[in-house]
Structure formats: structure tokens, C-alpha cells
């Protein structure tokens, strides 16, 4: 018998067998199937078609993966993950997150003047960023996988147990670390990068006991943005070619990671 395909009931049958219906509508179709053997037979035939098509795909699938397809897939992953930096869609998300979590910081954070007023360790961070972060050959002493030694050394020198913050959530991977001995004291210098190899410097220093704590501050030095703050025991500085909002979002992520929040 001819079945009218534009019949709403017919659409409902299709939707039922593809699992597209909410439970109560699905129940109604099931009830209908008990009194409509023709509809029940159609459903059975369509389900069988689906099963056969899936089996055909299984049977046709070559066992060996294609190398070029794999390479193209990796390249696409690179391209898509690059969209995290500096792209309006992503930036809006970060901006929204920052407004939610650190409005206080930004509202009260002062724009520090450039140059001599930056704390010494922040000036060191800016210098280290310009020297090492852009170095494509040997930016770090300790690559990410052997950072434990650097962390032990830094923990001993800084008198604090240091944890290397994970910035995976922001698409930033640790490249590695360096230990710096400077006029501002021993410093742990970390480099992160995103999928497009944009580099971020993170510097951790001992907080001078005679100095007061201070909240998050932003500064611009040359073409980089610097964010720095103190948690009372340790001082932190971030340097990257990034917007104020991005730096604030990264700082927020670091404090959240370090305090386990």
C-alpha cells in the first residue's frame, strides 16, 4: 500500500526510529505501533536498513590509516587551536570570564607607570622575556618534562614550595624553565606557549619581607603587556604580547591553580 511520506505521522515514525523524539512522544509512537502492524513493519525495515548501512561502512573501512589524512588532521588541529589567541570570538569569552571573576582586580588594579617604578623582579621579567622567550633555539634550560629539578632548586632558593601552574585550560603549554640569579635575587622563569607558538613568560620571585603586599597591576613595556602581583610570600610577573584582558585572565588562572580553587 502507498504510504504518504508527507503525512506528519510518517515524519514522526522516522524521527522515532532515529531516536529524535522526546520520551513522551516516543511512547505515543510505540503505542501506535502495537495497533498498526504496517507501521511496525516499516519501522523494522528502516531499522534494518540503518544496521546494514553501518555494517557496510565497517566492511568497507580500510584497516590501515592514511598518512596524508593523519597529517592533514593534525594541521587542521593546529589551525583551529590557533583561533584561541586574538580572535574576537575567543576574546569575548575571556573578557566575559574576566569581568565575572576579576572585576575587582581590574577596577582597583592600577596602571603602573613604565620604567623605573616597576619592581626590580618585574623589570627582570621583561628583560628575560625579551632575551629568552623569542629565542627559538634554546629558550629554556629545563624542558617541560624535566622541570622537577628546576622546581626543587627554586623551592629551596625561594624558601617556598613552588608549583608550576598548569595553563592547559587556556591552551598554553609549558615550554620549560630557567633559573636566574639577579640583583633582585633568585628567580624561577617559566615559558609557556600556545598552539601558534606565541610565548608567555611567567616569573616567580621571593616577596621581599620589608615590602607590603600588592594587588594585581598592569603595565605596558614596549610591545608587551606586563601583569604582576604578590601573594605575600611570592611575587609573580607575566609578560606577553597580549591584551590587558588576556594577561588578567592568565593571572586569574594562575592564582586559581596555585590556590587549588
Amino acid at each position: 500500500m502507498h504510504r504518504d511520506i508527507e503525512d506528519p505521522d510518517e515524519h514522526e515514525l522516522q524521527a522515532y526510529l532515529d531516536g529524535q523524539l522526546p520520551p513522551e512522544e516516543a511512547a505515543r509512537v510505540e503505542e501506535r505501533l502495537t495497533r498498526d502492524p504496517e507501521a511496525a513493519a516499516a519501522i523494522e525495515a528502516f531499522l534494518e536498513q540503518k544496521a546494514l548501512i553501518r555494517e557496510a561502512a565497517d566492511a568497507l573501512e580500510p584497516s590501515a590509516a592514511d598518512l596524508r589524512t593523519a597529517a592533514l588532521t593534525r594541521k587542521l588541529a593546529d589551525r583551529l587551536s590557533r583561533r584561541r589567541w586574538g580572535v574576537p570570538g575567543w576574546l569575548k569569552q575571556v573578557a566575559a570570564a574576566v569581568v565575572l571573576v576579576s572585576a575587582g582586580w581590574l577596577a582597583h588594579g592600577q596602571y603602573a607607570a613604565m620604567g623605573p617604578q616597576l619592581p626590580d623582579y618585574v623589570a627582570e621579567a621583561v628583560g628575560a622575556h625579551s632575551v629568552f622567550a623569542e629565542d627559538r633555539y634554546r629558550p629554556v634550560e629545563f624542558p617541560a618534562e624535566s622541570s622537577d629539578a628546576a622546581v626543587q632548586w627554586a623551592s629551596a632558593k625561594l624558601g617556598q614550595e613552588i608549583i608550576i601552574p598548569s595553563l592547559d585550560a587556556l591552551g598554553l603549554e609549558l615550554v620549560g624553565s630557567r633559573l636566574l640569579g639577579t640583583a633582585a635575587g633568585p628567580l624561577l622563569y617559566l615559558i609557556y606557549e600556545d598552539a601558534a607558538e606565541n610565548r608567555l613568560s611567567v616569573l616567580v620571585a621571593q616577596h621581599p619581607p620589608d615590602q607590603p603586599d600588592y594587588a594585581f597591576r598592569l603595565a605596558s613595556v614596549a610591545d608587551t603587556t606586563v601583569g604582576y602581583w604578590s601573594d605575600g610570600a611570592l611575587d609573580y610577573a607575566l609578560v606577553a604580547k597580549a591584551s590587558d584582558l588576556q594577561i588578567a585572565a592568565i593571572a586569574e588562572e594562575i592564582t586559581a591553580t596555585l590556590t587549588g580553587m
Binding site: 589524512t69 587542521l76 583551529l80 583561533r83 580572535v87
Partner: peptide, 15 residues
Amino acid sequence: ALIKAIAAADTWQPG
């Protein structure tokens, strides 16, 4: 399709 996707990566909205 992958080559076209790479070229059009900017049209994909993260999320």
C-alpha cells in the same frame, strides 16, 4: 574536505 577546512579554519567559531 580537510584541505578546505584548513583554509577555512577562521570560519569555525570556537565552541
